[in-house]
Structures are given as structure tokens and as C-alpha cells.
Design a protein around this nucleic acid. Structure first.
Length: 425
DNA sequence: TCTGGGGTCCTAGGACCC
DNA sequence: TCTGGGGTCCTAGGACCC
């Protein structure tokens, strides 16, 4: 049976999540900040109307926030992740074939019927998601993923479409594409946008009509696929099985500059433990461990330093204490005193399946089973009682370098113990 | 005082081999 | 005197995504 793509995109997802549990925010301007309360990463419609831009640094916007009474939140990924699961479960009721594309987007594969029927079905999806989860979504329908993306942006932009736009429902697709800015196309970022504009390509129709060889030469085969998709030729298929991660990264900026090796080690151990847990959750182990360290690049008047170091593990591992030990060894190699560090991180790569670890001769007397059991217990407790319930000594307890999250909402859906206790008396 | 984090894929160019 | 060239692998860097 012929199929069509629908892209379901949650509107202002993080801001909408905050709203679901705090009706006081309804109709008011809301922003959610990135980790460390750094910059704006989500805005409600009211905030967008006030001219607050995506990625704007929070400290430069404080006056505007105050002036307009904008309600500001630190990002609460425990809440957003849980809300995302609810939205995706709801969508699964409507389409057996579905790809969870990001925390707030999913592609559905729907039967190709009549344009009216497909649009009606999307309206039904939209209504149900709102009813079951409280999250408003926009839905774009098109013959390729790229065109479904175009349609979803139109659905979101023009209120008259009431959240659903079906590009197959219009005879004159080219007229729609002509009004669609080239930089809004999925796969065209700021660099390509500027390049294309320099060559007179300003809208999606012009890109659709560009010459294949020219596109391939300047935008690589990925760009050519985008162009084919604009022409209605599917080049990107529905990926139902998420591919195993090729690398796992864990890093954060510090809440204040950090100078001492001891504190850097604490932070690095903490992030390594996070990465190791992710590794175990996908039943894999890593062979390469990469550590990096940097100062604050925005501080032009301070001395800058960046360094990184990679080690190949003798045997692939997902055992937190061992990974922490390797990570700290790397850190000692690259650490230089006298700098004010801003960020540290670890990247685990060459990931292999847990049950296919190549043991070398030296490791035969290694207590693999005992370590595995220990990690399972740690992971279970942290899942049930909240992250950080059980941690390793190297991670430290004071964590004064920890990122700022001054404006965090409670974890309404996942954790009763973190709802702030009101002190009396 | 204060500027996020975590991914993917592709290409060019160097090293190396025969 | 004259000094190849194709294939493969790896890495760094650049583009993109949310």
C-alpha cells in the first residue's frame, strides 16, 4: 500500500511541558534556559512575539525578562523526557510504523488515502495528543520526510491551518515552495543558506530546480538528497529501530570557574559515571575513552587553553570505577595549573555489545560477573530513587562546581522526593 | 558574575601498500 | 637522463540536526 509521511512536532516543547503542570503559565510568556541557565532554548508563543531570540544568552536578557514579566525556567530534562515518552506512546496508537526523531518530533508512516482523509486523521491525532498529554502539536504531511517537515513548519506558522498542513492537499506545491525560505529547509543550515543566497537561491522552489551536479559539488550528497526529496523522490526512509550509539558524550559547563585538579577530577568522575550508565542502558561497552578540558572562550582577556587525550582500553568496559580511573589518568596528562576552566567532558567510543567483549589473556582473572552485578544494583537504585542516589567516591559530595539550575521546576511526573519541602518556623 | 549538550554524516588529504 | 598510480584506511574538520 502506498504510504505518506507525517511529521508530528510538539509546539515549544519544553515551555509546553512546564505549562502542563503549572496552568498559571497559560497565556503568559515563558522561556526555558539551557543547562547552567546559559541561554534561551525554548520560548512560548508570547515570548517569541516579544522578540526574545533562540540561543540568546540569559544574562543579557534579564532586563527584558523583567520588563515583560517573562517566566523563566531552568531546563528540567527528567520532566521533558517523561512527557516525551507519553506523547510517543499516544502517537503509537495511530501508526504502527513510526520513527522517534527527537525528544519532541516523530515521523509517522500513514496509509495514502485521499488528501482530505489524511488531513482529518492528522487532526484526530492532534486532538488526542492534546487531550491525553496536554501538549499541543503541529503536523505536516508530505510524500517525503523533507516535504513533511516543510508542511509542519507551515502548519505551525499560519494559525488558519489549525495545526495541520498537508502539502499533497494542494495542486500547486511549487507555489508553496516558492514562498518557503531556503534556510528553513531541513538540512540547510546557516552556512549553506548564506552560500545558496550568494548564488541567487533564496527559496525552496529555486533549490528544487538547481542542477544536480552543482548541488552535489557544493552541498555534498546529503544536499542532493534534500533536493531530490523536495522533488518528491524519497531518499530518507523511516528508521524504526534506533541505531546503537556510536559514541556517548557527557560534559557540562561549570557553575563557576574551576582551577584545582581535585575539583576537575570530581566533575570528570561525575560525567564519566553518567556516560557509563548510558552505555550500560544500551547493553554495550566502550573501547576508547576520550577526555577534554577547556577554559571559557568568551573571556577574551583570560588565558585560553584546550586539550584532550585519548586512551584505548585493554578490554572494552562499562564498569564505572574502571572508566573513572582511566579518565582521571588522562586528565592528569592534560591538566595545566593556572587556568580558569569552564568545561570538562568525556567521550566514549568504539562501542561494542556487552556480551561480545573480547577478553584478553590478562583479564581472565578479572571479576567481571561481580562488577556487572554491582553496576546493575547501582543503576536500579538510581532509576528508582533518582539520579545520584548511589554514586562513587571519586565523584565528590559537595560539587561546588555544579551547573546552575536556579529556576528548576519540580520533577512533577517522575520523582516525589525532589519536590521542594517548604520550611516553616 | 553570567554564553548548552549531544549527536550524525561527508569529504579532503595524508599515510601506506603494492 | 628519467622518479607511477590506484586502492584503502584513518583522521581532522566542517556541515548539519534537535
Amino acid at each position: 500500500m502506498k504510504k505518506i509521511f507525517a511529521l508530528v512536532d510538539c509546539n515549544n516543547f519544553y515551555a509546553s511541558c512546564e505549562r502542563v503542570f503549572n496552568p498559571r503559565l497559560e497565556g503568559k510568556p515563558v522561556v526555558v534556559l539551557s543547562n547552567n541557565d546559559g541561554c534561551v532554548i525554548a520560548r512560548s508563543e508570547e515570548t517569541k512575539a516579544l522578540g526574545i531570540k533562540m540561543g540568546q544568552p540569559a544574562f543579557k536578557s534579564e532586563k527584558l525578562f523583567k520588563k515583560h514579566g517573562i517566566l523563566v525556567y531552568s531546563s528540567n530534562y527528567a520532566l521533558y523526557g517523561d512527557m516525551s515518552d507519553r506523547v510517543m506512546e499516544t502517537l503509537r496508537q495511530f501508526a504502527r510504523d513510526m520513527e522517534i526523531y527527537s525528544i519532541d518530533e516523530a515521523f509517522l508512516s500513514l496509509p495514502y488515502t485521499t488528501p482530505e482523509q489524511m488531513t482529518d486523521y492528522a487532526r484526530e491525532i492532534r486532538k488526542t495528543v492534546k487531550k491525553w498529554t496536554g501538549i499541543p502539536v503541529s503536523i505536516g504531511i508530505g510524500p517525503t520526510k523533507t516535504l513533511a517537515k516543510v508542511a509542519s513548519k507551515i502548519a505551525k506558522k499560519y494559525a488558519r491551518f489549525k495545526g495541520v498542513f498537508n502539502i499533497t492537499d494542494h495542486e500547486k506545491t511549487d507555489q508553496i515552495l516558492e514562498k518557503f525560505p531556503v534556510g528553513d529547509i531541513w538540512g540547510v543550515g546557516p552556512r549553506y543558506e548564506a552560500f545558496l543566497k550568494r548564488h541567487g537561491i533564496k527559496n525552496a522552489l529555486q533549490l528544487k530546480r538547481a542542477h544536480d551536479a552543482w548541488v552535489k559539488k557544493h552541498l555534498t550528497v546529503m544536499g542532493l538528497r534534500t533536493v531530490m526529496e523536495l522533488r518528491g523522490v524519497p531518499c530518507f526512509s523511516l528508521e524504526q529501530m534506533p541505531a546503537a550509539r556510536k559514541g556517548i558524550m557527557s560534559s557540562r559547563s561549570f557553575g563557576r570557574p574551576v582551577e584545582s585538579l581535585d575539583e576537575l577530577k570530581e566533575a570528570l568522575a561525575t560525567y564519566t559515571a553518567i556516560a557509563a550508565e548510558k552505555l550500560r542502558s544500551q547493553h554495550s561497552a566502550a573501547t576508547i575513552l576520550h577526555v577534554f578540558l577547556m577554559t571559557n572562550r568568551f573571556k577574551k582577556n583570560e588565558p585560553q587553553y584546550y586539550s584532550s587525550s585519548t586512551t584505548i582500553l585493554p578490554v572494552a568496559s562499562s564498569y564505572t570505577p574502571e572508566l573513572i580511573r582511566f579518565a582521571c589518568e588522562q586528565l592528569e596528562k592534560i591538566y595545566k595549573p593556572g587556568y580558569r576552566y569552564k568545561k570538562i567532558g568525556v567521550f566514549l567510543a568504539e562501542i561494542v555489545s556487552q556480551d561480545r567483549i573480547q577478553l584478553n589473556l590478562l583479564s581472565l582473572d578479572y571479576p567481571h560477573e561481580r562488577n556487572k552485578t554491582l553496576m546493575q544494583v547501582v543503576d536500579k537504585m538510581n532509576q528508582r530513587l533518582g539520579p545520584g542516589t548511589v554514586q562513587f567516591g571519586a565523584e565528590g559530595t559537595r560539587k561546588e562546581w555544579h551547573m546552575r539550575r536556579k529556576l528548576l521546576s519540580p520533577r512533577y511526573t517522575t520523582q516525589w522526593s525532589e519536590i521542594p519541602v517548604v520550611k516553616t518556623g
